[in-house]
């Protein structure tokens, strides 16, 4: 059961990573990247590393996303 959940998480992780690369809209890419961080956080927790999971949730999904959004609001929204 746990293996199925792990497999599902890893498939979702790779899918979101590919989506981030392929998205031309940087705002959407930032939001998808925060989803990637949340899934990564779940993977860390499943692998038994709650410390890293906390860091990933706080830094990856929280602070970096805000910094990305501030940067986008300061520059351009679409990749050329």
């Amino acid at each position: 059961m746990s293996e199925i959940f792990d497999l599902l998480l890893l498939v979702l992780l790779i899918t979101t990573a590919l989506c981030v690369i392929r998205t031309k809209d940087l705002l959407a890419a930032a939001v998808i990247f925060s989803t990637y961080s949340l899934i990564m956080c779940l993977v860390w927790q499943m692998r038994g590393a709650p410390d890293v999971a906390l860091t990933e949730a706080a830094v990856g999904a929280g602070v970096t996303t805000v910094l990305f959004l501030v940067t986008i609001s300061r520059t351009v929204r679409r990749e050329k």
């Binding site: 410390d51 906390l54 860091t55 706080a58 830094v59 929280g62 602070v63 805000v66």
Partner: peptide, 8 residues
Amino acid sequence: QGGTIFGA
């Protein structure tokens, strides 16, 4: 971890 969440 605590510091990052407080920063957020």
